[in-house]
């Protein structure tokens, strides 16, 4: 079972993930229409690129935008969760050991203590975001079961990972659960709105180009996000 989920199933998950996000991105870009979107993507592109980079850059920076600064708590949870979501699986020692075993290559690893902290932080941040969804009326009204499910999908590998690491079950049950959760997560990324994994960059770039090319980017220093 372990071999299967970390073997063919993992391959499948990674293929769906990588192919999926590429397809998503390609479809997005192909679906752009300068006339309908009212942005000349290919004219004055330099202004567009500048706008896109500003748009992405400011929004990747913690507290880099007015919106973030207005909501410090949310922003903290948001960045903690996303940093954890990305760093932990890539730089986790266990993952890299596995990688080295299978392919003989591996990435540098973070100390186990650090990844543990990150994991706990991700779970805590997710909890905060979940509570926020329930507590704030303006968020509750737009929250759907789907949103909660996606949050669960994103956090499940972390919860199961912790259990796998610390539960000491010899039957590898938690490990298998963990791997499955991770694979579900990977597959969910291109297939659900977790696709914002790539589409965040796409939509941000698009709006940045819109502002950069059309909405004043050529007549000002650029919008102060």
């Amino acid at each position: 079972m372990y071999e299967f989920v970390t073997g063919p199933l993992a391959w499948l998950a990674f293929i769906v993930f990588f192919v999926g996000i590429v397809v998503k991105l390609v479809l997005y870009i192909r679906g752009l229409d300068w006339k309908l979107d009212r942005v000349t993507y290919s004219v004055n592109t330099s202004y567009g690129v500048r706008g896109a980079l500003r748009s992405i850059g400011f929004w990747l920076m913690p507290y880099g935008t007015q919106s973030y600064r207005n909501n410090p708590g949310f922003t903290l949870a948001l960045f903690v969760m996303h940093i954890g979501l990305i760093l932990t699986p890539i730089f986790l020692l266990g993952h890299n050991i596995l990688l080295a075993e299978r392919w003989g290559v591996s990435l540098p690893s973070l100390p186990e203590g650090a990844t543990d902290v990150l994991t706990v932080c991700v779970i805590a941040a997710a909890l905060v975001l979940l509570l926020r969804r329930i507590a704030l009326p303006e968020v509750r009204i737009i929250t759907t079961a789907y949103d909660v499910l996606l949050l669960a999908i994103a956090v499940a590998p972390f919860v199961s990972g912790l259990l796998a690491h610390y539960a000491h079950d010899n039957g590898q049950l938690w490990t298998i659960v963990h791997v499955l959760c991770g694979e579900v997560f990977l597959v969910a990324i291109p297939l659900t709105k977790l696709s914002h994994f790539v589409l965040f960059f796409a939509t941000r770039a698009q709006l940045g180009m819109d502002y950069g090319i059309k909405r004043g980017g050529m007549k000002s220093k650029g919008i102060a996000w």
Binding site: G31, L32, E138, D147, S195
Partner: peptide
């Protein structure tokens, strides 16, 4: 004919975070 990837993506990937609430003077 008119709702292409930009608008569809906007509709699809809204994470329902609610940060737009306070930006709206009607809200």
């Amino acid at each position: 004919k008119t709702c292409k990837s930009r608008t569809r993506t906007w509709l699809e990937i809204c994470t329902h975070c609610g940060l737009c609430a306070e930006s709206c003077f009607y809200y």
